[in-house]
Structures are given as C-alpha cells and as structure tokens.
Design a binder for these strands. Sequence first.
DNA 1: CCAGCTGTTAAGTAGCTGTTAAGCATTTCG
DNA 2: CGAAATGCTTAACAGCTACTTAACAGCTGG
Lengths: 231, 231
Amino acid sequence: MIKDKKILLVEDDLSLGMLLMDFLESEGLQVTWRRDALSGLQQARKQRYDLCILDVMMPGMDGFSLAKNLREYDKNIPFLFLTARLLKEDKLKGYALGAEDYITKPFDENELLCKINVILRRALLAPQTTEEAPMQIGQFQFDASRQEICLKDRVTRLTEKENEVLLLLCQNQNRILRRDEAVEKIYGKYDYFLGRSFDVFISRLRKILKDDPEVSIENVFKVGFILNVPD
Amino acid sequence: MIKDKKILLVEDDLSLGMLLMDFLESEGLQVTWRRDALSGLQQARKQRYDLCILDVMMPGMDGFSLAKNLREYDKNIPFLFLTARLLKEDKLKGYALGAEDYITKPFDENELLCKINVILRRALLAPQTTEEAPMQIGQFQFDASRQEICLKDRVTRLTEKENEVLLLLCQNQNRILRRDEAVEKIYGKYDYFLGRSFDVFISRLRKILKDDPEVSIENVFKVGFILNVPD
DNA sequence: CCAGCTGTTAAGTAGCTGTTAAGCATTTCG
DNA sequence: CGAAATGCTTAACAGCTACTTAACAGCTGG
C-alpha cells in the first residue's frame, strides 16, 4: 500500500476524527487533522497535500464551500467527502465540485483506505509539477517559472493562463497536444466556452511566437494542436 | 463531461445491460457491451478501452477472474465492479485486484456517471500510455501520434478518421483487417451507412498511398482489406 | 476611485470533415 | 451467362470547428 503521503483531514467530530487519524497513521500516512473548515483552509495553504478528506456537515463553513476554496487555490488537489447525509443531490453536487469520491457514514475503515489508495495511486502516475529550467523554443527562451519568454533582447511577460497553455504545448512539442486533455488540465473540466477561451490563448500565443518563422502552433482539426519547433 | 471515451461493459443481465448502454451512449461515451466474461476478454484484446465496467456475478467466469485476466494483458487498464452483493470481503477483494471503484446495485445512473468521469479524468492526467513510434509502410513513414504520413519530403496530414483507419490497417499489415471489426472499433457499432463511409476512407487512403507501387490496400470480397507492404 | 490588466464571452468569417448519394465496376453463384 | 450483391470513386454538402478581433466584467494596485 502507498505510504508517506500527506493527508489533510477536516472533520469536526472529535471521536471520528481521532479514530480516522489513528487508523490512517497506523497505515503509514501522514495525517493533519483540522476541526473546522477555516483552519483546514489555512493549513492547506501552508503545505501541499496529496489528498484532502472533508466532512460535509460542519459548523461554520461546510465541506462543499471548503472544497470550492481549496480548488481556487490549487485546481488539481484531490479531495473526497465524508458525510452522514446520503441525499442524491448532495452526492452529485460533491462530484460536480470535482470530488474523487463521496463516502457516507457509517463506512468501513478498510474500504476508505482502499479508496484512498486508488486516489493516491492515480496521483503517482501524474507528471511532476512544473519544470524549473528555461526551455528553448526555436530562437525563444521560455522560462515558465518566471512566466516570461525572450527573443534576443526582447522580454515578454506572459499572463498566468498563457503561461500554462504554452507550458503544456512545450511538454508535448512536435506532437499533438489533445484539446480535451489540455482544457481538462487547465480548468479541471471541459465545456464549450472553455474550449473557446482556450482558442483565444492559442491565438495570442501565435501572435507572440510569430517572430520566429520556424516556430508554429499547428491545428489538427477536431483533435488538438502541435507546437512545431525546429530540430 | 468527458466524451468519446471507449467503455467496455461486461454484464450478463439483459435489461441492466441495455439500460446502461443506452444511458452511457446518450452521454457521449462509446460503449461496447459483452454478455459474458470470455467474450469480454476477447473484446478487450481487440481494442484498448479507457474503462471496463465488470459485473461480479456472471455465469462461467466471474468478474474478479476477468479482471485478473485483463490485468495480465494490460496492467494499467482501469476497471470498476458492479455487484448486487455487498459483502465487505468482496469489496476489499475487488480493490485488491486494482479496481477503481466498487459499486453495489441498485445504484443511481448519474452517480455511476460521476464515478466514470472521475476515473476518466484521472486517466487524462496520467502520462501517455501508448507512446507509439512512427511506423514504416513501404517507403512511407506513418506517425499516428502526429496524425501524419511522410514520403521523402512530402508530408500529408491525415484527418482523424483517416488516421484511425490507417492505424488499424497497420496493426494488421499483410493480413486481413475484417470489415465488421474495423467499423466496430471506429464507430462502436455497425450499419450499412457506416460501411459505406468506411469505404470512402479506404479510397482516400489508397489515393494517398498510391505513390509507392509496392504498397496497396487489397479488398477481400465480403470480408475486409489487407494492407500489403513489402518484406 | 480610477487605470490597467486578465480571462471570458461574443460575433463574424472561413474552412475542414465525415457522411451520403450516385454511377459504374467487380465479384459471386445459381 | 446474367442477376444480385458488394466494392470503388468522385462529388456535394451540412454541420461542425477554428481563427481573429472586439467588447466587457472583475480584479488589483496605487
């Protein structure tokens, strides 16, 4: 089983919280337990967690709002909900927020552990966060960590989203970056308007890149884009 | 929501199978439904699926054994179990086999859809499983991941479907690609018009490939096509 | 409170793809 | 042989997809 991963548990119930914390720690996970949404949120900003386990019903801010806030801060952070309510619409709401799972109390500890393992296992397969070193794109020098791209002595600062899109293109240079995958990575979901917005960034990046004729962003109809770079 | 992903449904119950197939297809997924484990296994070997939905209790081979066999063939393929039994040890067994989820009947269709989306979304974030090298077709160089084919210094970008058809032909080079299987793989079903459409793609590929006289797409009457390549 | 920036939505245009149709060619089989 | 079925190719087109520019609402920092 997967060990040494950081779990943020936000659960107001004292006995359940202790129980879970003990159990998960005994399984080799590093658990931080917070008893309300606000301090859970603060904790999540202090440190990156591999998974957040959120109680839905809590005094003050509920688990759904907490999840929304967490996602604003890190749009890829995995979380799952714990709840005593089994209202169908709640469940769907949880998933709509991007939850990995939605578990109703009472639940079996080992089953929870299995679900946690599934989530962590998938996260293991995901690529590393960001590349720090500047990259070469034809005659350009693209530094994603500084969010800027240089040609000779001209430096262009990119916007946050432009930077994300260009980074994705770079990570797939000279092969297709699938449209749906790209949008999914950037926004966490796909719909018509997000696709349109993505197009606008492609257009803006093309304008930036046009000064090197050997570099181009080529469309593959209905599928995606290829960042063509020489060599 | 995520569309155009290939789902393999293995479920012996007629009414549930039809219900699920209709529902998932109406959500834009490409569903192949098999009614027993053995033909499910055969189907999985014919084509890569993004997710397998397996009934646990089936006459003959059960869902667990099927999952084991699937994993031998592709150790990363995601699958989830459907079952009427809610025995705890069954559940844990399912997860131990590497299941993404374990769903007990009766279940809500929309909840199932949510879970499917979670799984497909996670798979999107994972690195490319099939990093395919360009293939040689006579004097051509066919790069399916760039969706293009080169002869000397002439580069032809293929359309999405052309690419799919040519890839299938390549995977069966110098032997028969059965017409019904090909259409089934590409469209998820077979009817008269799909067969006609398929013919058009064969015709268009022939036009592209005609510049190397050693390469041909040969018809086998009423059965399919052979991509003939030298050596 | 204003100015500037950013991301999203909108609108218009252009272009591509997959499907269907139609006419002719080829194969099969009684 | 002749009829029926199947295959081949070209053409046409509706619907979808993409590109660009513009406008705008929300936010940020001064």
